[in-house]
């Protein structure tokens, strides 16, 4: 879904600020929120796609203002609230996302592919800046759980994932820096032949 989280190419955030000798965690609560979030998904209360989609559904001001671990905290709180304050372990048992699938990959390395104008109201891992764009398949990664359904309790539906390279000018037009490209990992459902 469109939202604050899908920020590739946005011009809203001008300066990258780095910190010298940065600590892993900036406060005790960050460290504990990190471990607690992993404990919640690790116990199978939710899968990683639900976790990410709950982050995407946070209030945009909280998304920015609460920071990275604040978003994690907000995601777990939201999922618990939506489960009527119940914590239910064991709903998901396989923490890995790779799946062996029999389907023959539809595309091969070097194929030209076009991304669909795929913009569902729910979760997706097709970033907005590569919708409706033409690229070239660089790598095949085998089968993986499909986030668009897995985030909504609609099954794993594993699919082939491809690394697809898009030239800068295809993404950004005349504005692109010369000699640049972005390679994005995309599920087969997002792609069609040209």
């Amino acid at each position: 879904m469109d939202g604050i989280h899908d920020m590739g190419g946005s011009r809203d955030f001008p300066a990258v600020l780095t910190e010298r000798d940065e600590a892993v965690f900036h406060a005790e609560w960050e460290a504990r929120a990190f471990v607690l979030s992993n404990a919640y998904t690790g116990a199978g209360c939710a899968n990683v796609d639900q976790f990410r989609h709950a982050i995407e559904r946070l209030d945009p001001a909280a998304y920015i203002g609460d920071g990275y671990f604040g978003r994690w905290l907000g995601s777990i709180e939201l999922m618990i609230a939506e489960a009527n304050d119940q914590v239910i372990p064991g709903r998901y048992s396989d923490l890995s996302a790779a799946r062996k699938i029999d389907a023959v990959p539809r595309f091969g390395v070097g194929d030209t592919v076009r991304t669909k104008n795929h913009n569902p109201p729910g979760h997706t891992r097709l970033p907005g800046y590569v919708r409706n764009r033409t690229g070239r398949v660089e790598l095949l990664h085998g089968g993986w759980v499909y986030p668009d359904t897995h985030a909504h309790h609609e099954g794993e539906n594993p699919e082939h994932v491809y690394s697809v390279r898009f030239d800068g000018d295809e993404l950004w037009g005349a504005d692109a820096e010369p000699g640049t490209s972005v390679t994005v990992d995309l599920f087969e459902s997002y792609l069609e032949p040209t």
């Binding site: 590739g8 955030f13 990258v16 600020l17 990275y68 800046y129 950004w172 820096e177 640049t180």
Partner: peptide
């Protein structure tokens, strides 16, 4: 775990559009 700048909206939004400029920074 990633450094703060890697998680920051500025890096996430800009590195795909203007990587040479961000790398110069």
């Amino acid at each position: 775990l990633p450094p703060a700048w890697y998680k920051d909206p500025a890096y996430r939004s800009r590195i795909v559009r203007e990587p040479r400029k961000v790398l110069r920074e």
